[in-house]
Simulated scan of single mutants.
Amino acid sequence: MASRMHRWRLLTWVILAFNLAMLLWLVVALDAAEDSGRSCVGDLCEEAGDPTSSAGTWLVVLVWLAGAVLLGAAWLITHHTERPTRRPRRGWHR
């Protein structure tokens, strides 16, 4: 398996790195949305429980989805299947 891993295309590694970075960003955003209710005073504490307070988390999810679609499309477009090349016939030509 290790011998096949180094033969992956560069775009495959970019997609993997993008997904790992987005997962990390999502964890950080979820942690920030969770902690937002603990460090507030007065009316801000009531607003922290509001579902719209996690808008940053949803933004991360939307950016992740858009990036995954764009990178996936780029990967499919640039994917070259290994097909045997045709050799021209020798002899008679049109």
Score class of each variant (00 low, 15 high):
Ile15Tyr: 05
Arg86Gln: 00
Ala48Asn: 07
Thr57Pro: 08
Asp31Gln: 05
Arg94Asp: 12
Ser53Lys: 02
Ala17Met: 09
Glu82Ile: 10
Leu16Glu: 00
Glu82Met: 04
Ala74Val: 06
Thr78Gln: 06
Ser36Phe: 11
Thr78Asp: 01
Ala68Ser: 10
Leu26Cys: 07
Glu46Pro: 12
Ala29Pro: 11
Gly42Cys: 05
Leu76Lys: 07
Val27Cys: 07
Trp25Gly: 12
Trp58Gln: 02
Gly67Lys: 07
Ala21Arg: 07
Cys40Asp: 01
Thr85Gly: 08
Ser54Asp: 08
Thr57Leu: 04
His93Gly: 03
Ile77Leu: 15
Val61Pro: 06
Thr12Val: 02
Val27Ile: 09
His93Leu: 11
Leu59Val: 12
Ala68Gly: 03
Leu44Ile: 02
Thr52Ile: 02
Leu24Trp: 03
Ala68Glu: 09
Ala73Val: 15
Glu34Gln: 14
Leu70Thr: 11
Cys40Glu: 08
Ser54Ile: 11
Cys45Trp: 00
Ala33Gln: 02
Gly67Asn: 05
Leu10Asn: 03
Pro88Asp: 01
Asp35Arg: 10
Thr57Cys: 10
Ala68Pro: 08
Val41Trp: 01
Gly37Asn: 06
Asp43Ile: 04
Arg83Ala: 13
Trp92Asn: 11
Leu10Pro: 01
Leu24Met: 02
Asp31Glu: 08
Glu34Leu: 12
Ser39Arg: 09
Ala68Ile: 00
Ala33Val: 10
Leu62Glu: 11
Trp75Lys: 15
Ala33Met: 02
Leu23Arg: 03
Trp75Tyr: 12
Thr57Gly: 02
Leu71Thr: 07
Ala2Phe: 15
Val69Pro: 09
Leu11Ala: 04
Leu59Arg: 09
Arg86Cys: 00
Val28Pro: 10
Trp25Phe: 14
Ala55Pro: 06
Glu46Gly: 14
His79Gln: 11
Ala48Leu: 00
Pro51Gln: 00
Thr85Gln: 15
Asn19Tyr: 00
Leu20Ile: 13
Leu20Met: 06
Arg83Trp: 00
Phe18Asn: 05
Phe18Leu: 12
Met22Ser: 08
Val28Ala: 15
His80Met: 08
Ala21Ile: 01
Ser39Thr: 13
Cys40Ala: 14
Val28Ser: 14
Met1Gly: 11
Leu76Gln: 04
Ala2Ser: 12
Pro84Trp: 01
Val60Ala: 04
Ala74Ile: 10
Gly56Thr: 08
His80Cys: 11
Trp25Leu: 15
Gly67Met: 10
Leu11Lys: 04
Asn19Asp: 09
Trp75Gly: 10
Leu23Pro: 01
Thr78Met: 04
Gly49Met: 06
Pro51Ile: 01
Leu59Tyr: 07
His6Gly: 11
Met1Gln: 07
Ala21Asp: 02
Ala2Gln: 15
Ala17Leu: 00
Ala32Pro: 08
Ala66Ile: 14
Trp13Lys: 07
Gly37Ser: 12
Asp35Leu: 14
His79Pro: 02
Ala2Lys: 12
Val27Thr: 06
Thr85Glu: 15
Glu46His: 07
Ala66Met: 11
Asn19Gly: 03
Arg83Thr: 14
Val14Phe: 13
Glu46Asn: 09
Thr52Val: 14
Glu82Trp: 05
Trp8Glu: 07
Asp43Leu: 01
Leu70Pro: 12
Leu59Ile: 12
Arg38Asp: 07
Val61Asp: 03
Ala33Gly: 05
Ala32Met: 13
Arg4Asn: 14
Leu26Trp: 07
